[in-house]
Amino acid sequence: MNGNIAIDVRGMTKRFGEHTVVNGIDLQMRSGEVCGFLGPNGSGKTTFIRMLCGLLAADAGEGTCLGFDVIRESEAIKRHIGYMTQRFSFYEDLSIVENLDFVARMYDVNNRRQAVQDSIERLGLAARQKQLAGELSGGWKQRLALAACLIHNPRLLLLDEPTAGVDPKARRDFWEQIHELAGQGLTFLITTHYMDEAERCDRLAYLSYGNLLTHGTAAEVIAGAGLTTWSVSGSELAELALQLRGIPGVNQAVAFGARLHVSGTSQHLLEQAIAPFRTEQHTWQQVNPGLEDVFIHLMGTSQDNYTL
């Protein structure tokens, strides 16, 4: 029916003891989309992904993943997804080629030898294929893991912080590869803590303490937050930030490189609040809020909700 819907889940919930770490999350994704999954540490991203691929039993929730029932048909789902774990979880005591071969066998890949060799070539690891995975540097481990996830031509990739510890050049290559594959119809759900990566996603979902706070395109997410942001440059910005924080109307004052971003949800209140500080010492300029402003704002609000 919905050939172009990759993920359609509602009310996904996971509790560990008394803690609800994923709280009734709904998520829809179309095939070929690259969805960025963001949120602070411990917000439940990994847990949500594990439920999608049947690694954790959901306490509540329903829906489909690649057209299969997400609760009952995890066996079938597993065959068509590639899951890259946050922590390197291939066998450190097997060589690169042995790991890839193992994965290819597990998925019963056609033309296995060729698939493994192709994957090694693409990785650029042909010369080191006999090396033990445990001896690879952190970034190379990540790249090996990604290659292993792709070997069985999955339709959906769940990548849990795939670029953590990867150098900028490799990260650039990685994202190019992802968009290329997405063009071929693969769907990606990628968790990341990097803003530049978030900006490269078709859609974003932001999780905090198990709640899905917002989702949509980057522009929608930014618009949805309703922030007004002023960028300040000049001297003694740290001092200024300290003074600004806590004034009603100023939600946040955050350093962005050599500038300070001061944001508030009410344009009127913010302008009132900053008026006394607009002196010769600093240059004030209203800017469009960026994703990072929005995410920092989201983190702040959700914490408030939590402690209430």
């Binding site: 690694l55 597993k78 065959r79 922590r87 291939f90 994965v103 597990m106």
Partner: peptide
Amino acid sequence: ERGTMENLLSMPT
């Protein structure tokens, strides 16, 4: 203990 179980379980086996 080595964390490889997560990977193994994510495969259809």
